[in-house]
Amino acid sequence: MLYVKVKTEDGEELVLEVEGMTEDEIREELAKAGFKIEEIEVYEVEP
């Protein structure tokens, strides 16, 4: 499983499960949803 931890400019932290997306695609999708991203951390969790 691939997850991203996202910190927004307003200090909110989100953890999202993503599969088959690049970091650029993740940033693009979050921007479309109205999030202003300060930091993204991508990590993989073994089942």
Rank of each mutant, 00 (worst) to 15 (best):
E17A: 13
V4I: 07
G34T: 01
D10Y: 07
G11T: 01
R27A: 03
E9D: 08
E41H: 10
E39G: 09
T8Y: 07
Y3M: 15
I37T: 07
K36M: 08
Y3Q: 14
I37Q: 11
L30S: 00
E44Y: 14
L16W: 12
E28H: 09
E46P: 13
M1A: 09
V42E: 02
E19S: 14
K7A: 05
E39V: 11
V6F: 12
E44C: 13
V6A: 03
E12I: 14
E19D: 07
G20V: 04
T22M: 04
D24W: 11
T22F: 03
E13I: 15
V45K: 10
E9I: 14
L14W: 14
V18L: 06
K5C: 10
E17L: 15
E12T: 13
T8H: 03
L16I: 11
K36A: 08
G20S: 05
E23T: 08
E23S: 09
Y43T: 07
I37N: 09
V45T: 10
K32P: 00
L14Y: 13
D24S: 11
E29K: 12
D10S: 12
L2W: 14
V18K: 02
V4A: 04
R27Q: 02
I26M: 03
K5V: 12
E41K: 07
D10N: 11
G34F: 02
V4K: 00
E12D: 08
E25G: 04
G11A: 02
E25A: 07
K32N: 06
V45S: 10
G34E: 01
E41Y: 14
I40A: 03
L14S: 02
K7E: 05
E38N: 09
D10C: 12
G34I: 01
E9N: 08
V6L: 07
D10R: 07
A31S: 10
I37C: 08
L14D: 01
D10V: 04
A31P: 01
L30Q: 00
P47T: 09
E41A: 06
M1L: 14
K32H: 05
V42L: 07
E12Q: 12
T8N: 06
L30I: 03
G20I: 04
E23G: 06
L16Y: 12
E19M: 13
G20M: 06
V6G: 02
L14P: 00
M21F: 07
I40C: 03
P47N: 07
A33V: 06
M1F: 11
Y3G: 10
G20D: 04
I37V: 12
E38W: 12
D24R: 10
T22H: 03
E17K: 14
V45P: 08
A31H: 08
E44P: 12
P47G: 08
K5F: 07
P47R: 06
T8E: 01
E28P: 01
K36L: 09
V45H: 12
E19G: 11
V42S: 04
E38F: 13
V4D: 02
M21H: 08
K36F: 06
E38M: 14
E44M: 10
V18Y: 14
I40W: 07
E41T: 11
I37G: 07
E12N: 08
G20T: 03
E39L: 12
E23N: 05
G20P: 03
E46A: 10
L2K: 14
L30E: 00
E19R: 14
E13L: 11
I40D: 01
M1G: 09
K7N: 04
K5S: 04
E39P: 01
F35P: 00
Y43H: 05
Y43F: 12
P47W: 05
A31Y: 09
I26K: 00
E46T: 09
K7D: 02
E25K: 05
E13Q: 08
I26P: 00
E41G: 05
V4L: 03
V6K: 00
I37R: 06
G11H: 02
K7F: 13
Y3R: 15
G20Y: 07
E28T: 09
E39Y: 14
I26G: 00
T8Q: 04
R27K: 08
E12V: 12
L30P: 00
I37L: 09
D10G: 08
E17W: 15
V42F: 14
E25V: 04
V4Q: 00
I26R: 00
G11K: 01
E46S: 11
E38G: 08
F35E: 00
P47S: 10
K32V: 03
D24Q: 13
T8W: 07
D10H: 09
E39S: 14
I26H: 00
E29V: 15
M1V: 14
E29L: 15
M1H: 13
R27I: 10
L14N: 01
V6R: 00
E28Y: 12
E25S: 05
E13S: 08
E46D: 11
I26W: 06
E46H: 12
E17G: 06
V18N: 00
G11N: 03
L2Q: 10
D10L: 08
E39W: 15
E13N: 05
P47V: 08
G34H: 02
E17H: 14
P47F: 07
